[in-house]
C-alpha cells in the first residue's frame, strides 16, 4: 500500500528522500517491475526517478554512457547502442514493456532471467551509483552478486570492449516468454583460439553468474570439441527444478546454448 508518492527533481533530492524514508521506500523507474502484480515487496513510499534526468546516451573518447532512465526502446533506436546490446534488448519481445522499462530499472531488478544483464556483464559494463556521500563506479558483475539499493545513475560500456566479439543466446518456450536460460559470451578472437573469454549465464542461479572455470578452461587454449564444451558449461551450473524445466534439462540446455555461441559465430 503506497502511502506517499514522491517526485524529486534531482539526484540529491532522491537520495535524501531514500535515506529519510529508509527500507520502506523504493525507487520507481518505469514501473514494469515495481507496479507488477507479482512484485514481492509492497512499499509504503515510492520515489519516482522520472524527474531527475538521466535520460541521455552520450559517448566520450573512452566509453558510452547510458543514463539509467533511458527507456529500453530508446536504446534500440539510438545509434550509440552497440548492436550486441540491441540483440539482447530485443529478446524482451514485448514492445509495450520496452516502451516503459528503463535500463537502470532493469539492471536494479537484478533478475536471474534478465535478457540484458548477461550481455552487459559480458561486455564488462560498469555502473555509476550514487550514495549520499559519494559517486562511485562498480562493475555490474560485482553489483549483481550483492543486494544493493544504491541509486544507479549510469551504465557504462568501455569502448575498449567494442573490439571484442560479444554474442548472446537464450532459451524460452514461446516468443513472449521470460527467458528460462540466457547465455552471453565475449572474447577476443586469436586465430583458432579465443582469449580472455567472459562466459555469463542467467536462469541457473539466484542471479546472473559468470562461469569462471569455463573461462579459464577456454582462455588462450585450443577450442574443445563442441560436446566437451557443452559438458564443461553444464558441469559448472547448478540450476533448480521448477515449473519451467527440470534441473537436468537446464544443465543440458545451457551447455548447448553456450557452445552454439562459440561454434555458430
Amino acid at each position: 500500500m503506497v502511502l506517499e508518492f514522491y517526485k524529486p527533481t534531482s539526484i540529491t533530492e532522491a537520495i535524501a528522500l531514500k535515506n529519510k524514508l529508509g527500507s520502506e521506500a523504493l525507487y520507481l523507474a518505469g514501473g514494469t517491475e515495481v507496479n507488477n502484480l507479482f512484485f514481492p515487496v509492497k512499499p509504503k513510499y515510492l520515489i519516482s526517478l522520472e524527474g531527475i534526468g538521466l535520460k541521455a546516451i552520450e559517448e566520450t573518447d573512452e566509453a558510452i554512457h547510458f543514463g539509467a532512465n533511458v527507456l529500453l526502446q530508446d536504446l534500440l533506436e539510438n545509434n550509440l547502442t552497440p548492436d550486441f546490446l540491441k540483440v539482447a534488448i530485443k529478446r524482451l519481445v514485448n514492445k509495450n514493456i520496452r516502451n516503459m522499462a528503463t535500463l537502470g530499472g532493469h539492471v536494479a531488478s537484478n533478475k536471474s532471467c534478465s535478457d540484458i544483464i548477461p550481455t552487459l556483464i559480458a561486455c564488462k559494463a560498469a555502473l555509476e551509483v550514487v550514495t549520499e556521500n559519494e559517486t562511485k563506479s562498480i562493475l555490474l558483475k560485482d553489483y549483481v552478486t550483492h543486494e544493493k539499493t544504491d541509486l544507479i545513475t549510469k551504465i557504462i560500456i568501455s569502448k575498449k570492449v567494442l573490439n571484442r566479439t560479444v554474442v548472446s543466446n537464450n532459451y524460452c518456450r514461446s516468443a513472449n516468454d521470460v527467458s528460462i536460460l540466457n547465455v552471453a559470451i565475449s572474447y577476443v578472437k586469436e586465430g583458432a583460439n579465443i582469449r580472455e573469454p567472459i562466459v555469463v549465464v542467467g536462469g541457473v542461479a539466484k542471479h546472473v553468474i559468470c562461469l569462471t572455470a569455463v573461462e579459464e578452461a577456454l582462455d588462450g587454449k585450443e577450442m574443445p570439441v563442441r560436446e566437451d564444451l557443452e559438458k564443461l558449461v553444464s558441469d559448472n551450473v547448478s540450476p533448480i527444478t521448477d515449473i519451467r524445466g527440470t534441473a537436468a534439462f537446464k544443465k543440458y540446455e545451457v551447455g548447448v546454448l553456450a557452445a552454439s555461441l562459440l561454434f555458430n559465430n
Binding site: V2, F5, K7, L28, G30, G31, T32, N35, N36, L46, S48, E50, L71, Q73, K95, N96, I97, N99, M100
Partner: peptide
C-alpha cells in the same frame, strides 16, 4: 507518444 500498459502505471506517473 509511446504505447504503454496503463495497468503498470500508477496514476501519479501520468501527472
Amino acid at each position: 507518444g509511446k504505447l504503454v500498459n496503463s495497468c503498470l502505471l500508477l496514476s501519479p506517473q501520468i501527472d
